[in-house]
Write a protein that binds this DNA or RNA. Structure first.
Lengths: 248, 248
DNA sequence: CGAACTTGTCTAGTTAAATAGACAAATGGA
DNA sequence: TCCATTTGTCTATTTAACTAGACAAGTTCG
């Protein structure tokens, strides 16, 4: 409702093909609720964007491929129901709890496990000495089978040696912590930015080129404020809205 | 430090020209601190991305145009110093205060002023009746002359009739509020997402096509929790990192 | 200076994107 | 059933993007 219109604004020679610009604009318009149920006809859309009908068809074909639209000869192009998760970020952020009411299944999968030495940045974030051995876990979180986020997590290797196995067994960070004796934890700080998804993220999150991710760098700590986890989480921007609740 | 590498991953037939994909990858690599001072030579970059040298040159030309790089014949391509602002989002979020230590000048400019009727979404966010007259102000915030964010703000028109003039005069939301008798305000909630910038945002924020914005939808209130402002703010993702401090 | 590197410019050819128009095939309603 | 409207498919042409190679022009350093 921010006053946006589907302005027929496509730029030529911008390095982004017209059909992709149009696909992006249609996707956003649907997200904004401008279109519902049925799309306008291809000829109408072509006129609106000031391009040939075949160019619009290429855009629609891409969105059909994405699963957002469904074209039926003789009828028109239908808009498929799209769900967008709302993920709360608070002092007590938990992946599974956050999406509990919005999805029927959640799971966290371990995709990589490494041991590295703390550089200056990690050392200060986790409050350990430079060069201390750290455990680095790469995870992918899904809701209803759809990848929502992927994260790279750092822990003190000495204290959390069994973390990888615990995450694999429980499918949950919170439960893995519990197995290792951490019954509660809080989030100290979160830094957010957004950018285009890189190759690794596109693979893990099953995204198309040109997709946008939100990157959150967070420090988790025990309730007394001692850091235990440094996490860089990438959310698929078109699948999730981050909700920051400010406690009054 | 999230383990990213400048993997030579460019996708053909993706609707995004190779030179633009490469420009995006280089921009991100510089932001990640992978390159400093001088870029590798064009021939090395071409080999890395698996494309022709002329394609790399097109990418570099775009980044030179952006002001991020500077090519010198015979010497090479220099990386220009780039500053990224860190913008804190807390219960007491203030634009000018947030960037005070990072920039020598801040200003907020009023670019549009409208009166609209509250739809159901705005009415519930602001706690007013459906159809109540609202003031809609479009603002652009700059730091050191660089556009950082643009916002669309809604206020109860009856209570904040002089808001537009106050913002124009003071160049600050906080001071404008003060002129209208609101000495303090807090942020109730913030919803974040990210996407490609649309035409309007590219114009206001002086962005290139393909640039990413973070969209924050926030409700501000008086200290007792009564909503007074509904704001949709778009941040230029490559110019700012949002920092969410979780109060312990 | 001169060798070894860099970016800048040129021509030529290939591949992908976009335009243009015509017509087929399916749908839904009068 | 007939007709208007929709998406689907085809051919042809133009324009932009990419590749390939050669060479000029500027910088650095021994």
């Amino acid at each position: 409702m921010s006053g946006k219109k589907l302005s027929g604004a496509v730029e030529r020679r911008s390095g982004v093909a017209l059909w992709r610009q149009i696909a992006d604009a249609i996707r956003q318009s649907i997200a904004d609720g401008e279109f519902e149920g049925m799309m306008p006809g291809e000829i109408a859309l072509a006129a609106r964007f000031g391009v040939n009908r075949h160019t619009v068809r290429a855009a629609i074909a891409a969105l059909v491929e994405e699963g957002l639209l469904d074209s039926v000869q003789g009828r028109g192009t239908l808009i498929r129901r799209q769900t967008r998760f709302t993920f709360p970020i608070t002092r007590r952020t938990r992946f599974s709890e956050g999406l509990a009411g919005q999805s029927s299944s959640r799971d966290i999968r371990l995709v990589a496990e490494e041991r590295i030495e703390a550089d200056s940045m990690l050392a200060s974030a986790l409050g350990v000495e430079l060069g201390v051995e750290l455990l680095r876990l790469t995870l992918v979180s899904r809701a209803d089978g759809t990848p929502v986020s992927t994260s790279i997590n750092h822990f003190d290797a000495a204290r959390f040696a069994g973390m990888a196995a615990a995450v694999r067994d429980t499918g949950s960070i919170t439960r893995a912590y519990a197995e290792l004796g951490v019954t509660d934890y809080i989030r100290l700080t979160t830094e957010l930015t957004a950018r285009l998804a890189d190759e690794r993220e596109r693979l893990l999150l099953e995204l198309k080129p040109g997709a946008v991710v939100m990157e959150a760098r967070a420090v988790n700590a025990t309730p007394d404020g001692a850091p235990i986890q440094y996490a860089v989480t990438c959310f698929a921007a078109d699948r999730v809205t981050l909700k920051l609740d400010m406690p009054v």
